[in-house]
Each structure stands twice: as C-alpha cells, then as structure tokens.
C-alpha cells in the first residue's frame, strides 16, 4: 500500500496528537470519568492505525520500533501484577493506597460530586499500567499484520 494523498496525510498529521491526547486523558482519568485503561489504550493504538493508513507501512515501520513496544507491553503487565502483589498484606488486589493520605490517597464524599484527580489509591496506577499494556499490545498486532502483508507482497 502506498501512502495516501497529501490532503489525507495533512489531516491525519493534525489529528494524530489529538487522538493520542484523548487516549491518555481516558487512561489517566479512568477513576473519574467513563473509560479506563483498556479503552484509552485502544484509542491510542487506533491513532497508530491512522498513521499506517495515511502514511505507508514501510515509513511507519522505520519510526516505530517493535522492541520498544514489546518492552512497554511487558513492563505494563509486570507493573499491574506488582501493584496487585503490593497489597498482599490484606488480600491480593487490595487497594492499600486508598484513603491513606499518600499519593492518590484523598478520600471522596458520598454521592454526586465533581471529583478529585488525587483519589482512588491504586486504581489510577493500575489503569495506567493496563493502558500501557493495551496500547503497546494492540500497536504490535496492527504493526505486525501490516508488515507481514508487506513482506508477502515483496516476495511475490
């Protein structure tokens, strides 16, 4: 697949930072607004799919390294399991940071309120960990499928 026309490339070049920013917003605000790690990571990976469609696969392949993405994915999953093990004093997946006053430790009032980013204990950290894992994993899948079909075209 060659790269698309100049109009499509310009529009995707403008839209790409907003897609990435919206994805990271969903990941970080997972404990306040609808969304979370999985959804935000999928949106960021769809931003990479936009780049692959607009620019050519071989050009994206030169910029985005597979090794970096695999490292991000493994570290995200390890961070998730490590956060789950940190609460092992009570139970596995115990929220040891909630209402503790340390990072993300503020308590929240019951009922409908605008919310505070510095709440919810381990939930934002776990959301970030899952977001990193999902964005890297889906990006690897998209990139591998695109490059695999590219190699098949070249050998023919």
């Amino acid at each position: 697949m060659r790269e698309m026309s100049r109009i499509v490339r310009t529009v995707s070049h403008i839209m790409f930072p907003f897609v990435i920013m919206f994805g990271f917003y969903l990941v970080v605000h997972g404990h306040l607004t609808p969304g979370g790690g999985f959804q935000g990571g999928a949106i960021i990976a769809s931003g990479l799919a936009l780049l692959i469609v607009a620019y050519s696969r071989s050009r994206v392949k030169k910029v985005v390294k597979k090794e970096v993405l695999t490292t991000i994915e493994s570290s995200g999953l390890l961070m998730f399991i490590g956060l789950a093990f940190l609460g092992i004093g009570a139970t596995f997946f115990y929220n040891f940071l909630a209402n503790s006053g340390i990072i993300f430790g503020d308590s929240v009032a019951y009922g409908i309120n605008p919310g505070n980013l510095n709440t919810a204990g381990t939930l934002p950290l776990m959301s970030i960990a899952v977001g990193l894992e999902v964005l890297a994993g889906l990006s690897i899948i998209i990139l591998m499928l695109a490059i695999g079909s590219l190699a098949g075209e070249g050998s023919r």
Binding site: G30, H31, P34, G36, A98, D106, S107, V108, A120, M126
Partner: peptide, 20 residues
C-alpha cells in the same frame, strides 16, 4: 466511594473488587 475513593464505581469494580 468510601472504600476505594473512586467516583467511577465501574472502574472501582473492574480494577479493585474484580481485579482477578
């Protein structure tokens, strides 16, 4: 809300109560 400190109850279930 008082146990996890999260306004989004769905996220508190997904990442805390049903973390497995």
């Amino acid at each position: 809300q008082e146990e996890t400190g999260a306004n989004n109850v769905v996220t508190s279930i997904v990442f805390d109560y049903r973390g497995f």
